[in-house]
Design a protein around this nucleic acid. Sequence first.
RNA 1: GGAAGGUUAGCUCAGUUGGGAGAGCAUCUGCCUUACAAGCAGAGGGUCAUAGGUUCGAGCCCUAUACUUUCCACCA
Length: 878
Amino acid sequence: MRKELEKNYDPSQFEDRIYKSWCDSNYFAPDPDRTKPAYSIVIPPPNVTGQLHMGHALDQTLQDILIRTKRMQGYSTLWVPGTDHAGIATQIKVEENLRVNEGLTRYDLGRDKFLERVWDWKNKFGDRIISQLKKLGSSCDWSRERFTMDEGCSRAVREVFVNLYNKGLIYRGHRIINWCPHCLTALSDAEVEYKEMPGNFWHIKYPIKGEDGFVEIATTRPETMFGDTAVAVNPNDENTKHLIGKTLILPIVGREIPVIADDYVEIGFGTGCVKITPAHDPNDFLVGQRHNLEQIKVMNDDATMNSYAGKYEGLDRYVCRKALVSELLEKGYLVKTAEHTHNVGVCYRCGTTVEPLTSDQWFVKMKPLAKPAIEAVENGSVRFVPERFSKNYFNWMNNILDWCISRQLWWGHRIPAFYCESCSHMEVSKEDICVCPKCGGRMRQDEDVLDTWFSSALWPFSTMGWPDNTEDLKRYYPTSTLVTGYDIITFWVSRMIFSGIEHTGKKPFSTVLIHGLVRDAQGRKMSKSLGNGIDPLKIIESYGADALRFALATGNAPGNDMRFSDEKIEAARNFANKLWNASRFVLMNLTEDDGTLLGIDFSDANLAVEDKWIISEYNRLIKTVTDNIDNFEIGVALSEIYSFTWDKLCDWYIEMVKSRIFESGTESALCAKRVLVYVLTGVLKLLHPYMPFITEEIYQALPHTAESIMISDYPLYDEKKIFAKDEENVNRIIACITAIRSRRSEMNVPPSKKAKLYVVTKYKDAFLATEKILMKLASASELILLDEYTSDDAVMIATDLGSLYIPLAEVIDFEKEKARLGAEMKKNDAEIERLEKKLNNAGFVAKAPTEVVEAERAKLQKYLETRESLTVALNKLK
RNA sequence: GGAAGGUUAGCUCAGUUGGGAGAGCAUCUGCCUUACAAGCAGAGGGUCAUAGGUUCGAGCCCUAUACUUUCCACCA
């Protein structure tokens, strides 16, 4: 029994129901048929405690469009879902919660108790994001849902860590790293953002030992002078050369430091003399290494000063800075203070200014890993869409430094390194080690955890069971397409590429489809602090998931940011409504015995010219949509479906066949109905990947062969279903009807007023084939085909079909009509002149492709015909 | 400092190998025409940022300039 469609389109009535039916039917699981080609995607795992935002919605929509298309096209599709533990972000959230609700810190609870709390949190909110993804219609295989800290992924992490360590690609070292004094952890270079901030250049005198003079240095961070272990000058700088080798006395501190030569110092910048603080500046650190300088750390982990700062010990770095500057001023060491804006690194999670400092951390040696990963993109094995983002990638990968992977957090994968408490022997191992293999002493595991992105980097294969060579891995890895935003190319995409190549010997995916950010209606980034975020769930509630998906998938080019506005979502909803109503029309006219009439035979001689027209147009649509999807031009494909559905199917075809359909019982009516069902079903299929719910709801109400539209066959382009001649004829009539309507409207003829229509045409076939349509849609009371129209009481309309005359004597102002025709003639003549000039241009005719020249000739022909008609009409008015 | 985008209708944006510019929204004029007023039929509105160049032909390719966004680098 067929279902009826409700009178009004109300997605909330069916979206959840349909989603459940898909799940119950297990349609999201990959087809086990081994003969089908594989197509796979892994989800960019959202933060486990995060809330769905527009970025997710866009990301999900694009992936689902690809997956659903491929599934219908006969691929065995796998879309692996899951979530990320998001180390710092989650830990901060739980700590904040703990502080607000219980006034406790994580240290009050201790590591184990605290981690229990985080797991509680994860279990409580971990399902929320997943259920939100489902609201969007995502066709992920939920039975394969993964979490970066589940057993399998954790095993992969250990495997990778140990392998890299054994290859010498992971090492522990004392290096300068980015330290967040708020999160109390090291950060990788990628996790530091730079913000422009106003600051000062303080010029300070460093007295020269044994002389009266001094050296003037300029610094933006005077408080680090407690850690100065040299002053550097450029050996080629004539102005400062003489200082090399001298000894300086640090003001206030009194410690002696040397003047060294290093070409890191830029000649002509500042005073030419640079204080060197190896423990608190990345560049100074390198200078220190070159010159064997001592590293003096002057701050504690929370960015308060330590004992090296003498009486400033315990003060915050900025409080210290202020006090120190006053003291320097008092004592005459401060030469001047200049304003200076500079970029300051801040923690990407909490925004605190990071402190570069030396510390013992774990690193991944990047150069050897980066090389094959760069090559993979260079040789096209991994392809970015749009292509320009590969430049982004190269820029990062070519300049990459070693990756600091240890974090002083509790939430994350604990580093599998074990230290002996007795003999300090260290072992790195996949299994826990309790007893020292050297001395039998007790081993304790490294306190630190790994950077969240360390596990994300393994996501494409860890989710498929690696390091075991599972069936999934064999069948679905490497994955086909990765869909993500350009903002995490460095964080995530690049790391997946080198990890995949290193650990599986294969690239993790073939294509990286990059999308932009979803911004608010004013173009601002959506953010919590601005409070301008738009909640996708609210949008779904009031407009439906299909409308949201439509709004996100259309109207912007790949990789570009897009603005989300009410207008856009309303337009999307209106389209859904249009489709809904058109479908209702089709269904209303579907008599019971039509129910089996699918798969219409197109050799059927009963097909009217307009039937062939819409079938041809539909067939062309299939090609356009398929081609565009193949090129990842998802938005273009969708707008093609949109304009076909609205402009061709609804505005023309349905209007054209209405009168036929109402002649019930005739073969002609039946035929139109068959075509309607055929074309509508086809459009629904093409549209299904974009708007899965509404298309399914309508599909179920139509006569259908597949259980669900989502597992039905995707339409295929068929050259035999292009009826070029009929298309041409119908297009002529369409142009004709439009011209008539336009003239009537100009002349304020009410739509209800019908008028005789005289037609003078050399396209008699086209006219005869479409007579009825012309009559109805052009509001004609009678059609009269003539060889020549002789009276002068009619409005003449020059069209592609020929000259049309509407006798509307009472509304014609002859002078006005003459003027109008004259103006039209002038415009027409201008076109003729332009085309003749072009066609008389020997260069054009010789060099342009013949089809272009032919097209121009045809146009000229048309304008010449129009001139004839206009001339006749004008002569009559004289 | 390096790099990549953007500049097209009043607004937001498309424009896929170069062949006389499109959509949605907004505006104006008519319509409750038996699927749809979340609709129908018409209409107006653009020196495609500027200046050069290549070409028979440039919104599209090249060079320069202006304004703008983003990424990377950089706390002397």
